[in-house]
Amino acid sequence: MRRTVLFLTIIGLAAVFAAGCPKKQTTPIEESVSAEEGSGTGTTPGGAAGAKPVEEMPSQQEPFAEEPLSEGGGTDAAGTKAGALPLATVYFAYDSDELAPEAMAALDANAAWMREHAAVRVLIEGNTDERGTLEYNLSLGARRANAVRNYLIRLGIPAAQMETISYGEDQPADAGHDEAAWAKNRRCDFTEVP
Protein backbone atom coordinates (compact mmCIF):
# COMPACT_ATOMS: atom_id res chain seq x y z
CA MET A 1 0.00 0.00 0.00
CA ARG A 2 2.68 2.45 1.07
CA ARG A 3 4.83 1.39 -1.83
CA THR A 4 2.01 2.21 -4.22
CA VAL A 5 1.60 5.68 -2.79
CA LEU A 6 5.32 6.28 -3.05
CA PHE A 7 5.41 4.94 -6.54
CA LEU A 8 2.66 7.25 -7.65
CA THR A 9 4.42 10.11 -5.94
CA ILE A 10 7.54 9.32 -7.87
CA ILE A 11 5.76 9.16 -11.17
CA GLY A 12 4.41 12.60 -10.47
CA LEU A 13 7.83 13.82 -9.48
CA ALA A 14 9.46 12.29 -12.51
CA ALA A 15 7.19 14.46 -14.58
CA VAL A 16 8.39 17.42 -12.56
CA PHE A 17 12.01 16.46 -13.20
CA ALA A 18 11.31 16.30 -16.89
CA ALA A 19 9.78 19.73 -16.80
CA GLY A 20 13.07 20.98 -15.37
CA CYS A 21 11.71 23.11 -12.54
CA PRO A 22 14.14 24.47 -9.96
CA LYS A 23 14.94 21.75 -7.46
CA LYS A 24 14.09 23.80 -4.40
CA GLN A 25 10.40 23.23 -4.93
CA THR A 26 10.46 20.00 -6.82
CA THR A 27 12.66 17.41 -5.21
CA PRO A 28 10.79 14.49 -3.76
CA ILE A 29 12.40 15.18 -0.44
CA GLU A 30 11.14 18.74 -0.26
CA GLU A 31 7.65 17.51 -0.77
CA SER A 32 7.74 14.72 1.72
CA VAL A 33 9.26 16.88 4.41
CA SER A 34 6.89 19.77 3.96
CA ALA A 35 4.04 17.30 4.15
CA GLU A 36 5.57 15.89 7.31
CA GLU A 37 6.02 19.34 8.80
CA GLY A 38 2.28 19.77 8.89
CA SER A 39 1.76 16.58 10.81
CA GLY A 40 3.12 17.70 14.16
CA THR A 41 5.26 14.96 15.69
CA GLY A 42 5.34 13.18 12.39
CA THR A 43 4.34 9.87 13.90
CA THR A 44 1.00 9.71 12.15
CA PRO A 45 1.24 7.31 9.27
CA GLY A 46 0.61 8.50 5.77
CA GLY A 47 -2.44 10.87 5.19
CA ALA A 48 -1.72 13.08 2.29
CA ALA A 49 0.27 11.71 -0.56
CA GLY A 50 3.99 11.90 0.16
CA ALA A 51 3.62 12.15 3.94
CA LYS A 52 5.76 9.62 5.74
CA PRO A 53 5.99 8.49 9.31
CA VAL A 54 9.09 9.78 10.99
CA GLU A 55 11.01 7.11 12.81
CA GLU A 56 11.89 8.83 16.03
CA MET A 57 15.27 8.01 17.50
CA PRO A 58 15.07 6.64 20.99
CA SER A 59 16.11 9.36 23.41
CA GLN A 60 19.81 9.18 24.08
CA GLN A 61 19.82 6.18 26.37
CA GLU A 62 23.39 5.41 25.73
CA PRO A 63 24.19 1.96 27.00
CA PHE A 64 27.24 1.91 29.21
CA ALA A 65 27.73 4.87 31.49
CA GLU A 66 29.93 7.43 29.85
CA GLU A 67 32.79 9.23 31.38
CA PRO A 68 34.47 12.02 29.50
CA LEU A 69 37.63 11.04 27.75
CA SER A 70 40.46 12.22 29.94
CA GLU A 71 43.16 14.04 28.05
CA GLY A 72 46.58 12.65 28.75
CA GLY A 73 45.26 10.37 31.46
CA GLY A 74 46.89 7.18 32.50
CA THR A 75 50.45 8.34 32.73
CA ASP A 76 53.04 6.25 34.44
CA ALA A 77 53.65 6.61 38.11
CA ALA A 78 57.23 7.79 38.01
CA GLY A 79 60.00 6.81 40.38
CA THR A 80 61.10 3.63 42.05
CA LYS A 81 58.81 0.71 42.58
CA ALA A 82 57.01 0.29 45.84
CA GLY A 83 58.28 -2.64 47.87
CA ALA A 84 61.71 -2.80 46.22
CA LEU A 85 63.94 -5.52 47.69
CA PRO A 86 67.72 -6.09 47.39
CA LEU A 87 67.11 -9.03 45.06
CA ALA A 88 68.62 -9.39 41.60
CA THR A 89 66.42 -9.33 38.51
CA VAL A 90 66.74 -12.43 36.32
CA TYR A 91 66.53 -12.36 32.51
CA PHE A 92 65.25 -14.73 29.84
CA ALA A 93 65.70 -15.53 26.14
CA TYR A 94 62.97 -14.66 23.62
CA ASP A 95 59.75 -16.66 24.04
CA SER A 96 61.44 -18.77 26.72
CA ASP A 97 60.98 -19.47 30.42
CA GLU A 98 64.19 -21.47 30.77
CA LEU A 99 66.65 -20.36 33.43
CA ALA A 100 70.11 -19.70 32.02
CA PRO A 101 73.20 -20.31 34.22
CA GLU A 102 73.44 -16.57 35.02
CA ALA A 103 69.78 -16.54 36.06
CA MET A 104 70.34 -19.52 38.34
CA ALA A 105 73.37 -17.84 39.92
CA ALA A 106 71.30 -14.73 40.60
CA LEU A 107 68.53 -16.85 42.09
CA ASP A 108 71.02 -18.69 44.33
CA ALA A 109 72.00 -15.33 45.81
CA ASN A 110 68.36 -14.24 46.07
CA ALA A 111 67.52 -17.48 47.88
CA ALA A 112 70.27 -16.82 50.43
CA TRP A 113 68.75 -13.41 51.20
CA MET A 114 65.24 -14.84 51.39
CA ARG A 115 66.36 -17.50 53.89
CA GLU A 116 67.80 -14.77 56.10
CA HIS A 117 64.59 -12.76 55.77
CA ALA A 118 62.02 -15.51 56.11
CA ALA A 119 59.38 -13.05 57.31
CA VAL A 120 59.54 -11.06 54.08
CA ARG A 121 57.05 -12.36 51.54
CA VAL A 122 58.36 -11.95 48.02
CA LEU A 123 56.32 -11.18 44.91
CA ILE A 124 57.89 -12.59 41.74
CA GLU A 125 56.84 -10.40 38.81
CA GLY A 126 57.04 -12.01 35.36
CA ASN A 127 57.53 -9.73 32.35
CA THR A 128 58.02 -10.07 28.61
CA ASP A 129 59.23 -7.92 25.77
CA GLU A 130 56.69 -6.11 23.62
CA ARG A 131 56.64 -8.55 20.72
CA GLY A 132 53.53 -10.66 20.29
CA THR A 133 50.05 -10.08 21.63
CA LEU A 134 49.14 -9.09 25.15
CA GLU A 135 47.30 -12.29 26.06
CA TYR A 136 50.09 -14.68 25.12
CA ASN A 137 52.65 -12.47 26.82
CA LEU A 138 50.62 -12.49 30.04
CA SER A 139 50.82 -16.28 30.02
CA LEU A 140 54.52 -16.19 29.14
CA GLY A 141 55.21 -13.76 32.00
CA ALA A 142 53.33 -16.08 34.37
CA ARG A 143 55.40 -18.98 33.13
CA ARG A 144 58.63 -17.12 33.84
CA ALA A 145 57.47 -16.22 37.35
CA ASN A 146 56.56 -19.85 37.95
CA ALA A 147 59.90 -21.09 36.61
CA VAL A 148 61.64 -18.81 39.13
CA ARG A 149 59.30 -19.91 41.92
CA ASN A 150 59.91 -23.59 41.16
CA TYR A 151 63.67 -23.09 41.21
CA LEU A 152 63.51 -21.27 44.55
CA ILE A 153 61.35 -24.07 45.98
CA ARG A 154 64.02 -26.55 44.91
CA LEU A 155 66.52 -24.42 46.81
CA GLY A 156 64.38 -24.83 49.93
CA ILE A 157 62.42 -21.57 49.95
CA PRO A 158 58.94 -22.28 51.32
CA ALA A 159 56.17 -21.79 48.76
CA ALA A 160 54.27 -19.73 51.32
CA GLN A 161 57.01 -17.10 51.25
CA MET A 162 56.35 -16.37 47.57
CA GLU A 163 53.64 -15.06 45.32
CA THR A 164 53.72 -14.60 41.58
CA ILE A 165 52.15 -12.15 39.16
CA SER A 166 52.51 -11.51 35.45
CA TYR A 167 52.43 -8.11 33.83
CA GLY A 168 53.08 -9.50 30.37
CA GLU A 169 54.50 -6.73 28.21
CA ASP A 170 52.85 -3.95 30.23
CA GLN A 171 55.70 -2.97 32.52
CA PRO A 172 58.87 -2.73 30.44
CA ALA A 173 62.09 -1.79 32.23
CA ASP A 174 63.29 -0.16 29.01
CA ALA A 175 60.84 1.66 26.75
CA GLY A 176 62.98 1.11 23.65
CA HIS A 177 61.99 -0.97 20.64
CA ASP A 178 65.20 -2.84 19.86
CA GLU A 179 66.88 -6.04 20.98
CA ALA A 180 68.87 -4.20 23.69
CA ALA A 181 65.61 -2.96 25.25
CA TRP A 182 63.78 -6.25 24.73
CA ALA A 183 66.59 -8.17 26.50
CA LYS A 184 66.12 -5.94 29.58
CA ASN A 185 62.36 -6.48 29.53
CA ARG A 186 62.29 -10.28 29.40
CA ARG A 187 62.72 -10.61 33.14
CA CYS A 188 61.45 -11.38 36.62
CA ASP A 189 61.60 -8.64 39.25
CA PHE A 190 61.31 -9.22 42.99
CA THR A 191 59.29 -6.96 45.29
CA GLU A 192 57.73 -7.31 48.70
CA VAL A 193 54.14 -8.62 48.65
CA PRO A 194 52.03 -5.54 49.35
Binding site: L6, F7, T9, I10, A14, P28, S32, V33, E36, G42, K52, P53, V54, E55, E56, M57, S59, Q60
Partner: peptide, 13 residues
Protein backbone atom coordinates in the same frame (compact mmCIF):
# COMPACT_ATOMS: atom_id res chain seq x y z
CA UNK B 1 13.27 2.94 -14.14
CA UNK B 2 13.31 5.50 -11.38
CA UNK B 3 11.76 3.05 -8.93
CA UNK B 4 11.89 4.30 -5.35
CA UNK B 5 13.26 1.49 -3.20
CA UNK B 6 13.42 3.36 0.09
CA UNK B 7 11.97 6.64 1.30
CA UNK B 8 12.16 7.33 5.00
CA UNK B 9 12.47 10.19 7.44
CA UNK B 10 14.29 9.78 10.71
CA UNK B 11 13.97 12.33 13.49
CA UNK B 12 16.34 13.03 16.37
CA UNK B 13 17.92 15.67 18.56
Amino acid sequence: KGTVLLDKVWGGK
